[in-house]
Design a protein around this nucleic acid. Structure first.
Lengths: 383, 383
DNA sequence: CATATAAATTGAAACGTTTCAAGCGATTTC
DNA sequence: GAAATCGCTTGAAACGTTTCAATTTATATG
């Protein structure tokens, strides 16, 4: 009630009130009264008025409490508490330019890889008092652009992104705007940005060498579009490993690309391939674990045993890999840590934009052997 | 370059420039020049200037394009594109009082149920020009409270939440603050809020009846804490279904609760149980698919065949259910639609806060039979 | 006690939008 | 041909903060 009266006086309504004659006007004033009380929120002015200090002092009470005389600070805090004042983040942002909001842009949030990664980001970010806006682009560049616009307009201070494609043109706009950029699972080439990643070439090599060690020489690479950077990088690693193998016994590699790095897409693509082609491979290296699951479904549907006839190796080592119909051999990546580290870099840049120097953190992948790969069988030898 | 010069003129620097004498001043101007170009972002003013129209017109171009002459609109759009203008959400919010930001609070983003749900939310929200801040509470009430505070201070217009526990006390604060609230996968009892959910009692009944139809009479319910609303609701449905069955042939139900509704937790709990107890059930109804996967791992580790000796039924029908070691029988929920519908309700409330009436949308669950359940075997009959 | 210095407080000027009363031409109506 | 109407456009005011130069008050110094 005190609050309400204060507002009336503050808004100059009391003068109107004194001049009133008719009941209608009285009713009108009370209607205004009601509106003010129910719709207007408490602002820094109200606090200042109540505490008997100026606007700047209230602001200082929040932003540099040390600069205030202890008595003043106490007065202000009392008023804040009594009025239930919560600073308006928009006004604060508009003036100060700091939002404490980060954007995280990922190509596919259904992929547990990105879920785990996002958990790492969230934990790091929450600890620092920031928030994350999570954007899922479905591997579409258009959606990515749209989300980047949205994030820009939300004045996020930093953007963590796993770009859908290898073109960084839209990202330049971000850094030009002064928004901190951190590439996740990508290397920042020609870009003012930090980056966090895993040695994908090494991961590709691990996968290939595992299969060749098991005796496989006809290998299918079932992966995503060439312009997805880590797809390309792993492919490079695989080819490099092939080149390094002895010329007399060099494995043969063919590549099939799926539309989306998801189970259903992989299943469809491989099924279609098997319908029109003989089984001409004994090992499959998949773009990620979801693709591997789809591949296994397709193979099984054709009556091809995994790993009896064909070995399948995934990538990412998602949680499900061990519960899969055939527990999946995979290349593990430190997903959570990747996200956590990226968020820390991003926050560091936000807190310290001038002194900040861009850096790259690179993790190492690890081969996890389960049941989906086995030595090449006699039955398959003929392939 | 054009843009840069424009800004100089606009800021009145050109007059200063004309009056310059010394080199120092010239340098100063160029320094200012540099600052303006590199730090200031493109504002509605720049667009107005470039398009040769007023501020209001540019604003209208965004907010009521119909009110503009087509030629003017085109001019503005061209300027917007060329300058790469993105409206500043803070300023917009400050003036208009709308943030176009929603919060989504879920207990476990690693659970594909919530991933799919969040996709639905995101799609609905993006279409309406909103953004979502995604918060993952790890089923912890403390984290939930913390996130609700964060969202409040971010001035979100609405919060979509699947509360971790059955206490709604913290949610009352939200509605009191005038923030739209939408309960997801929960019923809003005694709360000013919309809600979207699935008939959980029906889902529980579906699961139980499926097992009893297959002849199972000793049933284990492996689920989460009692104070998780949908856990309780499904339990109610199960018990109701038992009560309805003929007295002579009534199934027996025992319950074990897991700490977290995740695979590893379920595996651990069931393993411990099997170590100290004989196998005294032939069917397991699980709190969700993740729990079911964990349960299957625990059973297999003990050499118990699924579904040969024990049938297992999950809940949610996550994408992975069909790729699981034993393709999972499950109760499907329209996850994506749930999220989509919830977001639509929330947005409707944001757009139309006065006229809005709270409502509940309820979907129906569906039994999906795969391989993890089978008729009770002779071997198991003795149990 | 006067002065210099330090500490605390003030308040006006941004920040980039939206809103809306007012203005301006062009067109229609009498 | 004057008046009324209509369709676009304009620009100042406001939203609630933060910032910072200026001012006041308190404290230390000679």
């Amino acid at each position: 009630m005190v609050n309400m009266v204060l507002r009336l006086i503050y808004n100059g309504f009391i003068t109107k009130f004194l001049r009133l004659g008719s009941l209608i006007n009285t009713a009108l004033v009370f209607w205004n009264f009601y509106c003010i009380v129910s719709i207007m929120s408490v602002s820094i002015r109200d606090v200042a008025l109540k505490a008997g200090v100026s606007l700047g002092t209230v602001s200082n009470a929040f932003n540099r409490p040390g600069a205030l005389a202890p008595a003043t600070l106490k007065k202000v805090q009392k008023a804040v508490a009594e009025l239930g004042f919560v600073p308006n983040a928009s006004a604060r942002t508009l003036r100060a330019g700091k939002t404490r909001v980060l954007g995280l842009v990922v190509p596919d949030i259904s992929n547990p890889f990105f879920t785990d990664l996002s958990k790492g980001v969230n934990d790091a970010v929450l600890a620092a008092g920031y928030v994350v806006i999570l954007c899922n682009t479905d591997e579409s560049s258009e959606k990515e652009d749209k989300y980047l616009d949205v994030l820009t307009s939300q004045n996020v201070q930093g953007i963590l992104i796993t770009p859908a494609r290898d073109s960084y043109s839209n990202l330049k706009t971000i850094t030009d705007r002064g928004i901190g950029l951190t590439l996740v699972d990508r290397i920042a080439v020609g870009l003012e940005a930090c980056s966090v990643g895993v040695d994908d070439a090494q991961g590709g090599a691990l996968a290939l060498n595992h299969l060749t060690d098991l005796g496989h020489r006809k290998i299918l690479l079932l992966t995503g579009a060439e312009n997805i950077p880590q797809v390309a990088e792993r492919e490079k690693g695989i080819k490099e490993a092939i080149r390094k193998s002895s010329a007399s016994d060099r494995p043969n590699l063919q590549t099939i690309r799926v539309d989306a790095m998801a189970a259903h897409s992989a299943e469809e693509t491989l099924t279609k391939y098997l319908e029109t082609n003989p089984l001409d491979f004994t090992g499959v290296i998949c773009g990620n674990d979801l693709v591997a699951l789809g591949a296994i479904r397709a193979l099984r549907a054709k009556g091809i045993d995994v790993p009896g006839e064909v070995s399948v190796i995934g990538y990412d080592d998602i949680d499900f890999a061990q519960s899969a119909s055939v527990p999946l051999t995979s290349i593990a990546q430190p997903k959570y840590q990747l996200g956590f580290a990226a968020a820390q870099l991003a926050i560091e840049e936000c807190e310290n934009p001038t002194k900040h120097t861009h850096q790259r953190i690179e993790f190492q992948p690890q081969l996890i052997v389960r049941s989906s790969t086995s030595p090449v069988s006699k039955k398959s030898k003929g392939i």
